[in-house]
Simulated scan of single mutants.
Amino acid sequence: MSVTTQLQDRIRRGLHDESGDVPGWVLITLMTAGLVMIIWGLAGPALSGIFEQAIDRVSGI
């Protein structure tokens, strides 16, 4: 078997490997969840206040 054939076989096996990078996806998911929690914690009270003001204005008509 030539070097070229061996390289082609490795590339084919790599392309058909469906195991994926599980630790990478877990890290991305955890980091995204962390960012959402931080943003929600910072912006949540302000958004809640804006929503309550809007409801009060609509109800006050």
Rank of each mutant, 00 (worst) to 15 (best):
Q53L: 10
V22W: 08
I39N: 08
I61H: 06
Q53W: 10
G24Y: 02
G49F: 00
H16S: 12
A46S: 11
R57W: 08
Q8M: 10
G49T: 01
L27K: 14
T4P: 00
G20A: 09
T4A: 13
A43N: 15
P45K: 06
L47A: 09
I11L: 10
M31L: 13
A43E: 12
Q8R: 13
R10A: 13
S19R: 15
G34A: 09
L7Q: 11
W40S: 15
W25E: 15
V22N: 06
L7T: 12
R12K: 12
P23N: 00
R13S: 15
I61Q: 07
M1F: 15
R12N: 09
Q8A: 10
A33M: 14
G60E: 01
D56P: 00
I28S: 15
L27A: 14
T5E: 09
L30K: 04
I38G: 01
L27H: 13
R12D: 07
G49Q: 03
S48M: 11
G14R: 05
D21E: 14
V22E: 07
R12L: 08
S48F: 10
I50A: 14
W40D: 09
G41Y: 03
I39F: 08
L15H: 03
G49M: 01
G60L: 01
I61N: 07
G20N: 05
I11A: 06
G44A: 12
F51C: 04
M37H: 10
P45Y: 05
I11W: 07
H16I: 05
D17A: 03
D21S: 11
S19N: 15
M31H: 02
R13I: 08
R57V: 05
V3H: 15
M31R: 02
T32D: 02
E18V: 12
I38Q: 02
G14L: 06
Q53M: 09
Q8S: 13
G14Q: 07
D56M: 10
G14A: 07
Q53A: 06
D17L: 02
M37G: 08
Q53Y: 08
L15P: 00
E52P: 00
L7K: 11
R13N: 14
G34N: 06
L30H: 03
L7Y: 06
G44N: 05
I11M: 10
M37L: 15
W40I: 13
G44K: 02
I39V: 11
I50D: 04
W25S: 12
L42R: 07
G41Q: 06
L42T: 11
V3R: 14
P23V: 00
T4E: 11
G49K: 02
I55F: 02
V3Y: 14
G60T: 01
A33K: 05
H16N: 14
I55M: 03
D9M: 09
T32G: 04
V3A: 15
L15S: 02
W40L: 14
M1P: 02
Q53N: 10
T32Y: 01
F51V: 05
V36Y: 04
D56C: 05
G41M: 05
G24R: 04
L30W: 03
G20T: 05
A54K: 01
V22P: 00
I39R: 08
L42K: 07
D56T: 04
R10Q: 14
D21A: 08
V36Q: 03
G14K: 05
L15F: 08
